[in-house]
Design a protein around this nucleic acid. Structure first.
Length: 295
DNA sequence: AGTGTATCCTGCAGGC
DNA sequence: TGCCTGCAGGATACAC
């Protein structure tokens, strides 16, 4: 569910609402959301001041005084809702799992229908170790097309599976993987190491473009995702292939197909994203295919 | 080692 | 109306 753009949107919305607040009390309504006993979790978090809110991959981080961090993995249906808020009146948490009550009044609720999410409190050092095992941030300046290509050539996995592997690239989920592959003209099932340097450069550009545009739109709300303000992400209307099986391709009017592998749906246009290795790249269409890197 | 699959959980849409 | 099946933005434990 929430991928990098959704997590980033939540972080930006949360920051003004929770930074500078002190946590007075923790209520754990569903202990399976934690990775430890709720008493242990509460002991570490109670009384702490929130000094910052950050994102890493799809995770939302509450930085606490005393070199600790609350790391929230949103799973498929996780939401972080500061209460009370105007939005909360219309969109109350339906499945609250963990509530942080502030000394100054109000609270932050982690709400998660399916309870695939995780909330944990780590030392900065423990978190750094975890973060080191994740792949690079695709929007980082240092993450070049050459970095992507170097990663791709080491794997025989289908490129869509490669993009979903958080150890290889951090923050890309099924929606944006499919969209980026479409923009790059790369079939989702092609072996990662079969992509040419030019294709890797198109894909690099497409990934960054899709993620940036989605952040600008506040993410994609299919059903459950909400911003910290309780609003919906508006990128859904701009999805070109995800969830559009049977509809015409925006570029060539062929029919968008759906494939299932790795237990996930893949959506693609068979004309714009040919399955054969080394197939011709489609001509630049109305959507503006990313140009190949120079050099 | 590197892939693919099943599983956790709830809710909803569609078929009958 | 209601029951059944399949599907969902993620991550991980396992089998091969």
């Amino acid at each position: 569910m929430p991928e990098l753009p959704e997590a980033e949107t939540i972080v930006r919305g949360l920051r003004p609402a929770v930074v500078g607040r002190r946590i007075r009390r923790i209520e754990v309504l569903h202990e399976d959301i934690l990775r430890e006993r709720k008493s242990a979790f509460a002991d570490k978090v109670r009384g702490a001041l929130i000094v910052g809110v950050e994102r890493r991959a799809k995770n939302v981080l509450l930085r606490l005084e005393g070199a600790r961090v609350v790391a929230v993995s949103l799973g498929m249906t996780g939401r972080l809702l500061p209460l009370p808020s105007v939005a909360a009146v219309a969109d109350r948490p339906g499945h609250p799992a963990v509530r942080f009550r502030f000394e100054s009044g109000g609270s932050l609720v982690f709400d998660d229908t399916r309870r695939f999410g995780k909330v944990e409190c780590l030392s900065d050092g423990e978190w750094a170790e975890r973060s080191d095992r994740m792949g690079p941030e695709p929007l980082a300046r240092a993450y070049t097309a050459a970095c992507l290509h170097a990663g791709l050539v080491r794997s025989r996995a289908p490129v869509r599976s490669w993009l979903l592997d958080q150890r290889r690239i951090a923050g890309v989920g099924n929606i944006y993987a499919n969209e980026a592959l479409y923009l790059a003209g790369v079939h989702p099932r092609r072996p990662a190491r079969g992509l040419t340097a030019d294709e890797a450069a198109w894909l690099h550009r497409s990934i960054r473009r899709v993620l940036r545009d989605a952040i600008r739109a506040g993410g994609t709300t299919i059903r459950d995702y909400r911003t910290a303000e309780g609003g919906r992400g508006e990128y859904g209307r701009r999805l070109l292939v995800y969830g559009r099986m049977g509809e015409p391709c925006a570029r060539c009017r062929d029919v968008v197909r759906r494939l299932v592998f790795g237990n996930r749906s893949a959506f693609y246009c068979p004309t714009c994203q040919p399955a054969a290795e080394g197939a011709r790249a489609p001509a630049s269409g109305p959507l503006g295919r990313p140009r190949a890197a120079r050099g």
